[in-house]
Amino acid sequence: MKALAPGTVIFHRHRGYGVITSVNLLTGWIAARFGSESRTLDLNLSTDDVEFADGEAIRFRRAPPDRMPHARLMAMVRELHRAGYQKLYLYSWPKPSGLHWRWHLFTGPRDWMQRPWREGWYGSGADYNVNPVMGWGDTPGATTSELVDALARFDPQGLAQALGRDEDHAAWFAQVCDALLPSYMYSLDMPREPGAPLPEMPPVPVIAVRAGLPAYAGPVIAWPPGWTGLWSRPHVLPAPAMTITGEPDLVKGFQRS
Rank of each mutant, 00 (worst) to 15 (best):
L80W: 03
C177R: 01
T245I: 07
H14Q: 15
W136E: 02
E146K: 07
M134A: 08
A150Y: 03
V206C: 04
A170N: 01
R67C: 06
E119F: 12
R67S: 09
R67E: 09
A75S: 13
L90H: 11
D54S: 03
L26W: 13
W112H: 05
E193F: 08
L147I: 07
P194T: 10
D249C: 11
V148N: 01
E200D: 14
P6L: 06
I58L: 00
P182E: 07
P240Q: 10
A179K: 02
R82Q: 14
M190D: 05
Y186A: 04
P224E: 00
A71S: 15
L163Y: 09
H169Y: 15
A222M: 04
T243M: 02
L180I: 05
D189E: 11
V19F: 04
P140D: 07
R62V: 12
F106H: 06
G141T: 04
S97H: 07
A211C: 05
W101I: 12
A31K: 14
Q114G: 13
L159M: 01
A32Y: 02
Q255M: 14
A208R: 07
A83C: 06
E79S: 13
F106K: 00
R72G: 05
G123V: 02
H81S: 01
P94A: 11
W121E: 02
H81R: 01
P248W: 07
F60S: 03
G125D: 03
M74R: 01
M190C: 13
P202M: 12
P6I: 06
R59N: 08
E193Q: 14
Y184S: 02
P219N: 10
L250I: 11
C177P: 00
H12W: 06
R59L: 15
S97W: 06
S38F: 09
L41Q: 11
T144P: 03
R210W: 04
Y186H: 10
W172G: 00
R33G: 05
K2Y: 06
P96M: 11
D168T: 09
K252Q: 13
R82F: 07
I10Y: 02
H12D: 13
G246I: 01
P156C: 04
V23G: 00
P182T: 09
F173C: 04
D54I: 02
Y17F: 13
G16L: 10
T143L: 08
A211H: 11
R67I: 14
K95M: 14
A171R: 15
E167L: 12
I207T: 09
A75D: 12
L80N: 04
G125H: 02
T107S: 12
V206D: 03
G135I: 09
I30V: 15
A162E: 01
A152L: 12
G125K: 01
W231H: 15
A32S: 09
I10P: 00
N131P: 03
D178V: 06
T107L: 15
T144E: 10
W29I: 08
A162L: 04
